[in-house]
Write a protein that binds this DNA or RNA. Structure first.
Lengths: 253, 253
DNA sequence: AAGTGGTCTAGACCACTCA
DNA sequence: GAGTGGTCTAGACCACTTT
């Protein structure tokens, strides 16, 4: 062990508390085990409940804990590795892709989506809502936007039950030329939070994708992944299977 | 800004506050403009300072605000699109890749890194610390791990100034066969936070990469990106240039 | 020295789950 | 109805930056 700096800078209580709890989780608790409640924990460590909660919040952010109102705080399993392509250039909804359609409407796209698609701000687009489930848990909620120009052969007799399949089927007749993606941090909107079984405002990883065909953006999607339970994987070599927690990667500079 | 009311549904105050502030940022403030201080804002909205701070915290998480202790709260510019490959299969440190080396040591890898590399837990590895700067701002701090077995031709007369370049040069003589990456949410460790000009615990996007050569993992890196200022881009079609904020993508289901 | 955001306290009540 | 986490208050002091 190198010489760690002592006394010169007071570490915040919640930060120290987080370290102590993190170590305790490794050594004294099993995955799924329920922790003492917040009032007891705060008393045990001699801090106010708000201070304890600040530590718990960070541990939940890092995927170490799961808190559920009315139930308690449990030790979270390691994050799931979730592949978000591009494993192969395939259209969304093609083949086996672990998504389940839960709704479909044709409505004017929000301004940000119109900019993504390159359509007029008031242009109506097909909007398919899908949910991705892994190991019995919802991990992502998605809105997939398809401009009518991308699916010219769409039949006219659409019911709520046939709308989404028909749009996807038409989309798949195009040749996919490319795709790009971006990932950023966000907080769950109320509707997404409900699908993800979380409270509104929960931290999420927002994956924005654009699909190109015939030199244009043929479709776009905004996928909202639970940041607490998911590790997004990219690239050719497949998903990691390492049990990996960031806080163990400390190293001198 | 008048007071709005109509509280038939018990939406949390901080959530409503966040919406109001978000709209105000769009209509009444310019990027870089400084907001009134927290005590004044709280008084203006008739809430406790802690409640106001809860709203500000979320807006900062979403990249709308930037808060600096001793200075104030300012309106953040849109997030930067930061490419994190794989644009082409190239080794880290090769060609022009916007990273600057700030240190290099040879030391035992943490357990999680040893697992990534497939080396023994006490195996010493070359550890290169790098920083990525965009538009004059640090956006990422990285630790790049290279096992000695990957750089057998390394000369023996290494000084702190020549260590990192020599390791990278040797690494580049291997043929890169593939790479994979994962992205997850984390909070900045003290050392990374310092490089990123943030407080410890700040939300970050942790990109873990593995580089393959000769059928083995030849190197691995853990890159810590500022979640407030960065949008990570992947894929073939290049970085987005869209001004995109997630909260504007609301749509019925 | 003044002003800012960051931390912390000791309470209170609410929304939710479950026996 | 008991117990849990979620929200909220009205203070206090601290660390930091700027003047």
């Amino acid at each position: 062990m190198g010489t760690t700096q002592l006394e010169s800078v007071p570490e915040p209580k919640y930060w120290h508390l987080k370290t102590v709890l993190n170590d305790a989780l490794d050594s004294e608790f099993e995955v799924g085990e329920i922790l003492p409640n917040e009032r007891d924990l705060a008393a045990r460590f001699g801090v106010a409940r708000a201070t304890l909660r600040q530590a718990l919040e960070q541990l939940e952010l890092e995927g170490r804990l799961q808190r559920r109102r009315g139930v308690g705080t449990t030790v979270a399993p390691p994050r799931m590795g979730v592949s978000v392509g591009p494993s192969a250039n395939t259209w969304p909804g093609a083949g086996i892709d672990a998504w389940e359609t839960v709704g479909c409407v044709e409505a004017a796209a929000p301004a940000a989506i119109a900019a993504l698609l390159g359509t007029a701000p008031d242009q109506a687009v097909h909007t398919i809502r899908r949910v991705r489930v892994m190991r019995g848990q919802p991990v992502a909620a998605e809105l997939l936007y398809v401009p009518p120009a991308s699916v010219p052969g769409l039949p006219g007799d659409l019911t709520p039950a046939t709308h989404a399949p028909a749009v996807l089927r038409e989309l798949h007749t195009l040749e996919l030329e490319g795709e790009d993606r971006s990932v950023e941090l966000g907080s769950a909107r109320a509707d997404d939070a409900k699908q993800l079984d979380r409270l509104p405002g929960a931290p999420v990883l927002v994956v924005t994708a654009r699909y190109y065909a015939a030199g244009r953006v043929a479709a776009a999607s905004v996928s909202t992944y639970r940041a607490d339970t998911c590790r997004l994987t990219f690239g050719d070599a497949g998903a990691f299977e390492v049990t990996h927690h960031q806080q163990d990667t400390r190293q001198a500079s």
